[in-house]
Structure formats: C-alpha cells, structure tokens
Design a protein around this nucleic acid. Structure first.
Length: 523
RNA sequence: GCCUCGUUCGUCUAUCGGUUAGGACGCCAGGUUUUCAUCCUGGUAGGAGGGGUUCGACUCCCCUACGGGGUACCA
C-alpha cells in the first residue's frame, strides 16, 4: 500500500512551493490508490506561529489537494499527527540508537560550538562535528564511561548525536528523480537527534513518524537532498526498511537567482501564497492567490506545471487528468523559474471555459466585496454581466474593475477620447439619437444596434464618431463589451438616463469652464 | 571553502543516438471586431563551452564554466 505524506512546519503561511509538494504527493497517492497524509512538524517550538496550522489546512482545502488521513483529515488511525503531541515517543528510538552504538551523548555547550565555528571561520574553514572532530569534543565517545554516567545522572545539558561511520565508505541511495546518489561518510556530520531540551530534531522525528505511519515514499523538496544520506543511515541503523525518496526541484525567482520567497512576491507584486495571511505577532501580511482573483483549479494546474509536464502538449488539466498522467520520470531535475504571466494565462483559460452559472457563483464574492448595489441580488442581471465580461477577464477581481459601471453610475469619463471625438456642433444630433434609439418596441441588443446604424446612415455622422461616444456615455471608458449588449442589459430607462447625462457633460469637456480632472478609470 | 544536484528559445517544457529540435507563455505583425478582449494566421528565439565514445550526438562519458541546494541543539 502506497502511503505518502506532506509534513510542513507551522512557521507561517504555506508557500506555493509547499503546495506543489503537497500536490505531487497527492497525485502520486491517488494514482497508486494509496494514502496521502498531513502531518505537522512543530518540534521547534521557538518557530511556532499561531494560526499557521489552520492556514495549512485551509490552504489544502482551498486547492482541493485533500489528505485522506492526518491532522484535520481521516479517522486518525495513526494519530496524533502533530509532532508536539508525539514528543513522548521519540526518546526511546534515540536510546536504541545509542544502545546499538549508532549515536552518542555530546556535552558541548552551544557557546563552545559557536566558538569552534568562528575559530574555523577565521581560517576560512568550516567546522563540522564529524568522525574526525568528535574525538576532540566532550562526548560519550571521548569521556570516560563513569564521567558520562555522572554527567547524565546530574542531568548535565547534553544532546544526542548520530554517529556517522568512520572510514572511506559512502552512503548510496536511489532517488526517483535523480537516480543514484552517493555521499562519502567523511562528508557527513554527526547531526543532533535529540536536542538539549530533550525534544527531537526534524531528522529524528520525521523519520520515526514516517516509520510508524508506514510511509512508503518520501516526496519532498530538493533542499532535503543533502540530509537524505543521514536519514538513510538512520533507517539502516534501526534496521528499518527505508522509504523510496523523490526530491523535487525547487521553484525559483522569476528574475535573478535563488528560490522563490515571500520577499520576491512583495517586491514583484506577485502572490506566493494560496490564501491571505496575517502574522499574529508581527502583523506582516501575505497576499494570496485567492484574493488576487485566481481559481484554485488554475493554481494547482500551473503549480503542477512548474517542474512537471505530462509528456504530450496538454497544459490545461484537471486534478483527475494530472492524477492519471503523473509520473516521477516526467519531473524535471532542474529548478523552474516562476512564470507569473503563464499563471495568469492559465487562470484566464479556466475563466474562459467555465460554465456561466458556476463562474457567476465564483465572481459574486468579488463584487460583494466592492459594492452593495441592489443589482447584486438580481442573479439574472449579474449572470449577464459575467457573461459579457467572461472573455475579457484574466482574474476574478477584474469582473469588478472592468464592470464597475454595471453596478454604479459612471463617475469619470475617458475625457481624453471625448475631447478628441466630441463635437459640440453635433450635440443636437446626439440628442436626437437618444430619442431615436430608445424609441423601439423591444429594447434588445439587436434592435438597439440596428437602430444606431440606421441613425448613423441618415444623420451624416460616422460610425467612428458615434460608437465611441455611446460607449463612453454608458460606461465611461473605451474598452468593454459590445455597446448594444451593455445598453440592452441596462434597459431603456437607464440607457436614456446615462446618454443624456453624458452628452451634457461632453459639451463641458470640449469647452471647459474649469480644468478637466485627470481620469484614472482604465487601470 | 567543502559537499551535492543541475544546465534545450526571454520563461515553462517535448525529445529517452538518426527530427527541418516540437508545443505553450510572452513579445511582434496581420485578420476578425464600433472599442477592448476572445478567436484565427504568421513571425521571433534554443541544445553553456571544450574534449571524447559512435557511422551518427541535445541525448552517453570526462573536464570547465555557470546556476541551485546544503553545510544549526531550523525545518
């Protein structure tokens, strides 16, 4: 039975890189008919951020990447799933390693270690607590047995370190994405397994949990590749069957070098988190894809595509499509630069293809955030607004920014265009136009359009002079859906009202009595 | 510094020794449209460099360069 897990640390909002790791775990589990569990790794209590855990769960739910077991999910077969709730179980495994000679007590204080480090650093070298240096440190390998016993009896501060084998050997293991990987013993260091406070480090805790929870595949970010040999060594020391590893390439900054971070998001104005988050202590906020106007299915779609491709030319894929097509062989080895333009394009594709009723449901909250117009209660009306705007919006937020005039009167007109196109001498003709176009039996888009065209033909005005004026009169701006569609949606009365108010205003624009205000309607 | 992983158009990628190196985003041009957008046509641009192996290398090997990651009593 395939069992995989996503095991983030609740140190803040869940980064989209984490979401992608969760997604790949999910895809693989589903494809194999296995389990996908969520576990929270909060052994470092100093880094714990309240709310982060809830955020992780909410983010996975929003994305639709749902664990079937774990914190907040499933029936709790292997509960608890929060490491801080499992603290009692780790020590005995550390003891077992010590008993087997694979670990030892180290009494060096943090100060002694930092002193060692800076000493080495001055010589442009790095200090590593390893097979060579440990012989010169204060630990149960160098101290006499009775002194060690004494120190332990006194409860002297100490940690438990893993004992990397000496000699020329190496650790070799296989990674589903990278193939065979090997590390020389001499390059590994004696990592701390149990900290001074008696709590386990990630290295011990995650491994014990993976073992107890019967995890078969460890799918995680590449930042873990270098500690994988340590983990493999521990599995072998415990005589546990090691899981199969897959180290995922990282998501990189769109510009320059390095992996994508919150800072990049802030700097470039692109979201790097699924949901909005406010740090409870620092008050720092993180912008989410949700509030930016992305659809969750689009987000997981483009996240999946950073570092993975199905092998054919498909790009727009549902979760189920991805489950079927997923394969580790298709995952790239190199990191992928985050491409926000592509992310937006994918979101646009989802908006374009979404059934109108569903789209309207998704758009509604974004409108409600901005207006309490009674029109919002008219589902037929808002649905029509969404229909007219559907192929023009890339983000859900744009249904409001592009469609404000459907819910509120026009406050500012595109005066640059008015100034260029409006001729006061035609003012009377436009007044006639108002009567002419509203005087039709059935005020439909087709009838409106036909009426406008026939007026143009008989009035001597040009199409290019009339249409833009009608558009701006109704909507205030030069871009948007068909003028006839907009008018038909407004209805006869509203259309008439807007046209006459606007045309009066246009005369003033062309012959201003006072300076024209700059309008900033179009973004 | 040391270790480790990587390197195909600007970006995301296809290619698993023999292809005019394909697709997508972006950008540019054109068409459609009263505008914008959608849609359609076309264009732009790539195997980091050097050695091998081979009849033949983007593909396999080595070196160099460059990039990522790691190097905590953090995960």
């Amino acid at each position: 039975m395939t069992r995989v897990r996503f095991a983030p640390s609740p140190t803040g909002a869940l980064h989209i890189g984490g979401v992608r790791t969760a997604l790949y775990n999910y895809l693989f589990a589903k494809q194999q008919g296995g389990d996908f569990l969520l576990r929270v790794e909060d052994t470092d209590q100093t880094r714990f951020v309240p709310g982060a855990e809830e955020y992780i769960i909410a983010a996975l739910k929003w994305c639709g990447v749902l664990p079937n077991e774990g914190l907040g999910f499933g029936d709790g077969t292997h509960a608890p799933y929060r490491q801080s709730d499992r603290m009692a179980i780790y020590k005995k495994y550390a003891d077992e390693l010590i008993a087997k000679g694979w670990a030892y007590y180290a009494f060096d204080t943090p100060d002694e270690l930092t002193a060692k480090r800076s000493e080495k650093e001055a010589k442009k070298e790095m200090f590593a607590y390893n097979a060579v240096t440990r012989t010169a440190m204060r630990n149960s390998l160098t101290l006499p047995a009775d002194e060690v016993a004494q120190l332990l009896a006194e409860n002297a501060p100490h940690v438990v370190r893993f004992k990397i084998p000496e000699g020329d050997g190496d650790v070799r293991f296989s990674d589903l994405i990278r193939g065979s990987v090997s590390y020389a013993f001499a390059q590994l260091d004696d990592k701390v397994l149990l900290k001074g406070d008696g709590l386990p480090t990630y290295h011990l805790a995650h491994l014990v949990d993976d073992y107890l929870m019967q995890i078969t595949h460890v799918i995680r970010g590449e930042e873990w590749l270098n500690s994988a040999p340590l983990h493999v060594l521990i599995y072998r020391a415990m005589d546990w069957k090691e899981p199969i590893f897959a180290h995922l390439p990282l998501i990189m900054r769109p510009d320059g070098n390095g992996k994508l971070s919150k800072r990049d998001g802030d700097r470039l104005g692109i979201p790097v988190f699924p949901l909005h988050f406010e740090h409870p202590v620092t008050g720092e906020t993180a912008t989410g894809y949700d509030e930016t106007g992305f659809l969750p299915e689009a987000v997981i779609n483009f996240m999946a595509l950073f570092g993975w491709a199905p092998g054919d030319d498909r790009e727009i894929m549902s979760l189920d499509d991805m489950v079927a097509a997923f394969s580790f062989e298709k995952i790239n080895k190199a990191g992928a630069k985050f491409d926000y333009a592509k992310a937006k394009w994918i979101n646009q594709q989802y908006i374009l293809k979404m059934p109108l009723d569903e789209l309207t449901t998704r758009v509604l909250p974004f409108l409600q955030k901005n207006t309490n117009s009674p029109k919002l209660n008219d589902l037929k009306y808002t649905t029509e607004v969404v229909r007219l705007l559907q192929e023009r919006c890339v983000l859900l937020t744009e249904f409001w920014t592009q469609g404000t005039y459907f819910f509120e009167g026009v406050k500012t007109y595109d005066e640059a265009t008015v100034a260029k196109k409006w001729k006061t001498e035609n003012s009377a003709k436009f007044d006639e136009l108002i009567d002419f176009v509203t005087d039709i039996d059935s005020f439909t888009a087709a009838n409106f359009e036909a009426r406008v065209k026939s007026f143009i033909a008989s009035s001597g005005l040009k199409m290019g002079d009339v249409m833009p004026m009608l558009r701006i009169a109704l909507t205030g701006r030069m871009s948007g859906p068909s003028v006839a569609d907009v008018a038909a949606l407004f209805g006869r009365v509203e259309t008439q009202k807007r046209l006459s108010a606007a045309f009066k205003r246009f005369n003033k624009v062309v012959e201003p009595e006072k300076p024209i205000e700059i309008n900033d309607l179009d973004k």
